[in-house]
Design a protein around this nucleic acid. Structure first.
Length: 469
DNA sequence: TATATGTTCGG
DNA sequence: CGAACATAT
């Protein structure tokens, strides 16, 4: 009897550096690749049309990569906990190979599937592959998970990395099998022309363009909003079109640019690790002090923030870029997050949800980690309350105002950095632009935020370290 | 991966 | 006088 393995794809839509796929090919005679479209998961985050579209197109590319190597991708619909075991029975498979998933939903799903398969004597092989270092691989001296990034990064960098695996040259699928159709899952809400090309080959081309181009000066340009100073690989890591290991391997060159870039991948692993250990998941155990925080219930302000009409140009530019493209560079994410949580004193979880609806790279661990860093509710040990000054951030990272003019067309007639402070224009000039006035005064809002954070105890960091209640 | 404010110092 | 630096929050 030939050994039959199922290669179950999820957030790893690639064939290169895919430990689970490689193991399946090595250990079985026949490999059945499968992807499950789970309607329940697809409905999350209001359907997240940008991610759904990008994923669907990337699945088409994966189907083609697999077909070129001899295997036909099966597309199943339904609950993985029943359709995967059903496929195992149908194909008489002996084993199922997956890339280990650490997110809450994925973890529970895999646990349930593994249990069901075990009853039929079939093992679920969960291989590494989503991170450079898996969430349970790095622990502090006393065996506890890291809460602070700097020591985590030190350990992360010191740990030897595995080498990327080549794509299997041949993947022996069942004889005469044909790939299933990949159903249309609907258009994105962003403009596809402004989104990165989906699929592993396009992602790899982006990676090579990046390491031969912007990477060398990444440390200088990463925060610049008026040019592409970042890699634009986030959605590729989100869907596993590239493995983080491959990205680090390609970027591992001497110099401050590569060093700063690789450190960002350590942040990705760090936040995955935080979520894995449930240290500060936004939705469940908020920091005790954060639970005491009295966020303002201000629907109008929330909508102004969401729609990019706060009257602060760099904030509005970023929110409009988010909706138009499904992407915002990290600096702009921090600016709008600070504005919502500090200037508007609105619950950052509402902002987090808005990001998850639109970001093509939306990932619970990284998104939550970033929001909590900005909101000051996470593990980050800064002893002060960070309040970004939107004018200062704008003039520093968009010094000529090009970013604002690109995304806020009302302000296109205003030249130079003056575009960051339209309220200083002559009143009739400002009014003629049609651009809204400020919904809050930053200086006053800053004082209000400092007072509110102090009242909740969020300006002190030592009290809740390691305590859970 | 911060801001605001005060101080110092060179042009 | 503004840039650069130091320091408190």
């Amino acid at each position: 009897m030939p050994r039959i393995a199922i290669a179950w794809f999820r957030r790893d839509l690639r064939v290169q550096d895919h430990p689970a796929l490689t193991a399946a090919v090595e250990e079985a005679d026949v490999v059945v690749p499968v992807f499950v479209l789970d309607d329940r998961l697809l409905a999350l985050h209001d359907g997240a049309p940008n991610r759904r579209w990008f994923m669907r197109e990337s699945l088409v590319a994966l189907r083609d990569e697999l077909a070129a190597r001899g295997a036909a991708l099966r597309i199943l619909r339904g609950d993985s906990r029943s359709v995967v075991p059903a496929l195992v029975r149908e194909t008489h498979a002996d084993a199922v190979y997956v890339t280990r998933d650490v997110s809450g939903t994925g973890r529970h799903r895999d646990h349930a599937v593994a249990e069901r398969l075990a009853r039929d004597g079939v093992e679920l092989h969960a291989k590494r592959g989503q991170y450079v270092h898996e969430p349970d691989e790095l622990v502090t001296g006393d065996g506890a998970p890291y809460r602070v990034f700097t020591p985590y990064a030190r350990a992360w960098l010191a740990r030897p990395r595995r080498s990327p695996l080549a794509a299997p040259s041949r993947i022996p699928g069942p004889a005469e099998a044909r790939p299933d159709d990949v159903p249309d899952l609907g258009p994105p809400t962003a403009d596809p022309a402004l989104m990165p090309d989906p699929g592993e080959p396009a992602a790899r081309e982006r990676l090579h363009t990046w390491v031969d181009g912007g990477l060398a000066t990444y440390h200088e340009t990463r925060n610049r909003l008026d040019r592409q100073g970042t890699s634009r690989l986030s959605q590729d890591l989100r869907f596993g079109l590239l493995s983080a290991t491959e990205v680090v391997h390609a970027a591992d060159r001497p110099g401050p640019g590569p060093e700063a870039f690789i450190r960002e991948l350590a942040w990705r692993d760090f936040y995955a690790q935080v979520l894995w250990h449930q240290l500060d998941a936004t939705t469940s155990p908020f920091r005790p002090a954060a639970r005491a925080m009295r966020w303002r219930d201000d629907r109008e302000a929330l909508e102004a923030w969401r729609d990019g009409r706060t009257g602060y140009p760099v904030v509005d530019a970023a929110m409009r870029q988010l909706h138009a493209t499904g992407f915002v560079p990290n600096r702009a994410r921090m600016i709008v997050a600070s504005f919502l949580a500090k200037d508007l004193l609105i619950d950052p979880r509402l902002g987090e949800a808005e990001f998850m609806r639109h970001l093509t790279d939306g990932d619970p661990a990284s998104n939550d980690g970033g929001w909590q860093w900005s909101a000051g509710t996470g593990t980050d040990p800064q002893p002060f309350v960070r309040v970004f000054n939107p004018v200062l951030q704008g003039t520093r990272f968009d010094p000529d105002g090009d970013y604002v003019r690109r995304w806020v067309p009302e302000l296109r007639a205003i030249e130079g950095a003056a575009v960051h402070e339209p309220w200083t224009l002559q009143e009739d000039v400002h009014r003629a632009t049609g651009y809204p006035g400020r919904i809050v005064d930053h200086a006053a809002a800053r004082e209000r935020a400092l007072a509110a954070f102090a009242e909740a105890g969020l300006d002190r960091r030592e009290d809740d370290r390691g305590r859970r209640d």
